[in-house]
Amino acid sequence: MYGTGILKGLGVTLRHFFQTYADDLRWAGKGGRYYNDEAFAVRQSPEAQGVITVFYPEEKLAVPERFRFVPFLVTDDPPPGQRWGHDWCTSCGICAKVCPPQCIWIERGKLPNGRPKPEPVNFFIDIDICMNCGYCAEFCPFDAIKMDHDYELAGYDRSTAHIHDKARLSKPLSYWQEISPKRAAAEEFGRQMAESAKTKKKGPDEEAAPGMPNDVARQLPYRGAQY
């Protein structure tokens, strides 16, 4: 019959309409549907029915560990009284070389005798050029540059704020462990593994290193193949 197609379609809309209220009822006794962590988790999962809205400034959708926004530099946890600890960056320049839009500038340090010093004097990232691809973090052999999760960077000015210098970029290791705990742990594991492999090689008849367990390896790019 002519018109059944339209009616069916309207039925779908009606179903969606009721689903939303059904969800309200479902959570009525359990702290409500909104501003409720438990309900929020369900609302954002594949089981979500009805409205899935995130009430952004109040409720924030967590970003996954691998999330990449603009990069930052990892330093040691600062000793008391200081803002930063020791830089992990050795200014080897791999990130600057692999960066697709070439938005990284590194000024390598110099020792008094003129030889290069494995430490950056300056480190700039122009976030107006950065494409958040994550190559710098992926190819850094020292785990010294990582992709930040802080996306709330909106501002009224770009002439100065959008070139991040070393002071702006440096963040302590504990920050990285906080935003990306599993991956930071896996990296630590990988570094130790590489370290022990290095020492073991010296031994005459040592077995090859056992390799990474699966649940560690899967946290890392290439399953930790670079370690």
Binding site: S91, G93, A96, K97, V98, C99, P100, Q102, I104, W105, I106, E107, R108, P116, N122, F123, F124, D126, I163
Partner: peptide, 15 residues
Amino acid sequence: HKPFGSRWPEGEVFR
């Protein structure tokens, strides 16, 4: 060709 020489090791930032 990339990578550009000005990025490293001198790395004086410019727009």
